[in-house]
Design a protein around this nucleic acid. Structure first.
Lengths: 244, 244
DNA sequence: CCGTATTTGTCCGTATGTATG
DNA sequence: ACATACATACGGACAAATACG
C-alpha cells in the first residue's frame, strides 16, 4: 500500500515528477534542512516507489541547485552561506529592474487596479501585524508582478532563485521586518507602474530587493554581535562537514 | 569490461556526469538539433553504458532547459522560438548591467590591462575578417568579464542562458554582423570599466546585449522578407509536432 | 479498428566505494 | 590499521504505454 503521506491527491504524473515535487516540498517545509543527507532508500519507502524515480528526481533537483550530488557519497541538501545568499539578491535586483520596466511598458488600467487591491490587502494585514495573513498576499502580489512582466523564461528563473533562498542557513533572517517596511516600497512600485514610467518602476523594484538585502545583512550582523556578547563559541554544527 | 567507445580519456567522473556532458556536446555541436527525439537506447550504446545514467543525465538537462521531457513519449531537444530567444536576450541584458556595475566597482589596474589585450586581439581578427580567430577571443573576453564580476551564481546562470541560446532554430542568425559592429561596443565597455564608472559600465554592457538582440530581430526580418519574395510557403517542417 | 513492435517507466539485484567500530 | 556495515552506482529485466502497419 503506497500510504500517501501528505493530504494532496498527487497529480497523476510520472513517479519521477511526483518525487521531485515531493522532495522539493520536504525542503521548503524545512523537513529537510540544509546540509542533510538525502537517503534514497528512506525516500523511496516514504513515496512508495523504488529507488529509480528518486534518483532521477535528485538529479533534476541537483541541476536546479537545491541538492548537491557527491559521487559515491550521495546527494545532500544544498546550504547557502551568506555570500551566496547576497549573490542571489544581487541577481534578483537586476531581474526585478527588468521586471519593473517590462510591466510599466505594457500594463492595462484593470491590471493596475488589481495591484492596488493586493496592496490594500497587505496594508490591512500589516496594520494588525498579522503575518499569517500578510505572507500569502505578499506572495500573490509578487506572483502577479511576475506574470505581468510577460516573460516566461524570467518567471521560471525568478521562481528558481526564490526557492534557492530557502536554502540559506537561517532563513528566518530573510523576512526580518519585511512586513512593515516594505509596504511603503510596494506602494512606490505600483505608483511608478501606474504612471507607466519604466525607468522609475525598474528602479523602485530594484531598490526593493536591495533594501531586503540590506535588511538581511543587518539581521546577520545583529545576530553575530549578540552571539559574541553571549560568548557563544560554535553552537550550531549539525554534525556534517562539507568536503574539503 | 566497460569498453570505452570514444577516443577521449573522459575524466573519471560518474557515468551520469559524463553522459550529461556528452549529450550537451552533442547538442552544442549540432549533432542533435532542436526538436530531435533523444533515444535512450541509442545513447546508452553510444556511451557504452546502460540506460540508467542516460536517463538521469536527461533529467538534469531537462531541468536545465536543454531538453523537454514528455511523459511516456521521451525527451526531446528543446527548440527556442523567436519569442523565447528575445526573452533570453532581455534577461541577459539585465544580468549584463549587473555584471558591468560589479566589475567597475572592484577591478584592478592589471585586470584592466588584460581586458585591453583581449580587445586588441579581437581588433586584429576583425580587421582581417577572420571569424575563426575572432570567435575564441570574443569568448575569452566575455568569460573574463564573467569571472571579474565575482559572483559565482551569476556566472553559472549566465553560462546556462548562453547554452540555451544555442537552441534557437536558426542559430546562424545569432552572430549576424557581430564581428565588426560589436568591436566598438566592446571598447566602450572597457572604457567605462577602466574609468571605474559602475553606471556607465552597466549601461554599456546592457546596450551591448540589446544591440545584439536588435541585430537578431533585423536578421530574422530580412530572412522572412526574402522568403516571402521567393514565394516559399512552408519549407521547414522537420516532421515532428509538439503535443497539443 | 486491431495487433505488433518499439520505447519508455519502473523495479530489483549486484558491485563498488565510503564511513565506522 | 582491518574488517564490517551501509549507501550509492550501475546493469538488466519486466510491465505499460505509445506509434505504426
Amino acid at each position: 500500500m503506497p500510504e500517501n503521506t501528505g493530504g494532496t491527491p498527487d497529480a497523476p504524473r510520472s513517479l519521477t515528477a511526483r518525487a521531485q515535487a515531493g522532495i522539493e516540498n520536504l525542503i521548503m517545509n524545512g523537513e529537510l534542512r540544509g546540509g542533510d543527507r538525502v537517503n534514497e532508500i528512506a525516500l523511496s519507502e516514504r513515496f512508495g516507489t523504488s529507488r529509480g524515480p528518486i534518483r532521477e528526481a535528485c538529479r533534476a533537483l541537483a541541476q536546479e541547485g537545491l541538492l548537491v550530488a557527491v559521487p559515491n557519497r550521495g546527494v545532500f541538501v544544498r546550504q547557502l552561506d551568506l555570500r551566496e545568499a547576497l549573490e542571489v539578491y544581487d541577481i534578483r535586483s537586476a531581474l526585478d529592474e527588468l521586471m519593473g520596466r517590462s510591466i510599466a511598458e505594457r500594463i492595462s488600467d484593470a491590471q493596475i487596479a488589481e495591484l492596488w487591491t493586493l496592496i490594500d490587502g497587505m496594508d490591512d494585514a500589516a496594520a494588525t501585524r498579522d503575518m499569517e495573513r500578510y505572507y500569502p498576499v505578499n506572495l500573490a502580489f509578487h506572483n502577479r508582478l511576475l506574470a505581468l512582466a510577460n516573460n516566461r523564461r524570467l518567471e521560471r528563473l525568478y521562481r528558481s532563485l526564490i526557492k534557492e533562498l530557502h536554502l540559506f542557513r537561517r532563513k528566518g533572517l530573510l523576512q526580518q521586518g519585511s512586513m512593515a517596511i516594505s509596504n511603503a516600497e510596494h506602494r512606490q512600485i505600483v505608483n511608478a507602474i501606474a504612471e507607466r514610467d519604466p525607468i522609475a518602476a525598474g528602479v523602485s523594484m530594484k531598490s526593493h530587493v536591495l533594501a531586503a538585502k540590506q535588511r538581511l545583512l543587518a539581521a546577520v550582523e545583529a545576530e553575530r554581535s549578540e552571539q559574541l556578547s553571549r560568548g557563544v563559541a560554535d553552537q550550531n554544527n549539525g554534525g556534517k562537514r562539507r568536503r574539503a
